[in-house]
Amino acid sequence: MSTPSEMRVTVARGDASNPSEMEFTVPVEANQTVLDVVTWIQQHADPTLSYRFACRVGMCGSCAMMVNGEPRWTCRTHVSRVLDGDRLVLAPLRNLPVIKDLVVDMNPFFDAWQRADAVHRPSRARADGVAAVNPESRPRIAADAAIECINCAVCYAACDTVAGNPDYLGPAALQRAWTLINDERHSDPAATLDAVTGTDGCLNCHSIGSCSHYCPVELRPLDAIAGLKRQVVRRALGKRLPCD
């Protein structure tokens, strides 16, 4: 496939009350990432462009945007993989309020983590020593599968259920609750399950699976949410939680 020497980049500008678009012509480079493109525009074309990034190596979770209509971590997304002909369309993350240009307000995303009771409450005090956790136990394997989340909100932007119901907790917060429920050191898994089974909790998920499809670190929030639903049903049948 021939690579164009230049690409046409459409960038969303302004905020919700005053949205607009601008087009830039950006030189194509080898191994160029989408974040490189945004940085090139800000440094060479328009210094007023606002965007957010920090680590540039896929750890901090701050640079996610909509790239050609799909949510992606821009620092680890190569232009060559997403370029549509010579077109690149960049927009702020879906399902979150726009502050300016490519920067969204992450508060609704993090508020959902709080509402999901995604807080570890230790079951032991300092004097009790370190808990012996069997890495082969089923709950630990389930918890391990989900702990590498970088909070980038790509899943939140991808989720159609969040799009339809902004009060829905969303994949990341629910997945976090699932790791806690499977953590035998967490003192109150029942309270955490309660927090995610309210009217805007895990039972609203339609298993569309966009969260697992787009998660840049290849986690599977869809599986975590299915796990939560199973525990809700088990509890309704009077059975105990995995770590209760």
Binding site: M66, G69, E70, A91, R94, A158, D160, A163, H206, S207, I208, G209, S210, H213, Y214
Partner: peptide, 18 residues
């Protein structure tokens, strides 16, 4: 404003709903 996600399970969901 943005396109909705495009993948097999998304179409399966839409078919189920419609």
């Amino acid at each position: 404003m943005m396109n909705t996600p495009r993948h097999a399970l998304h179409w399966a969901h839409l078919l189920h709903r419609v």
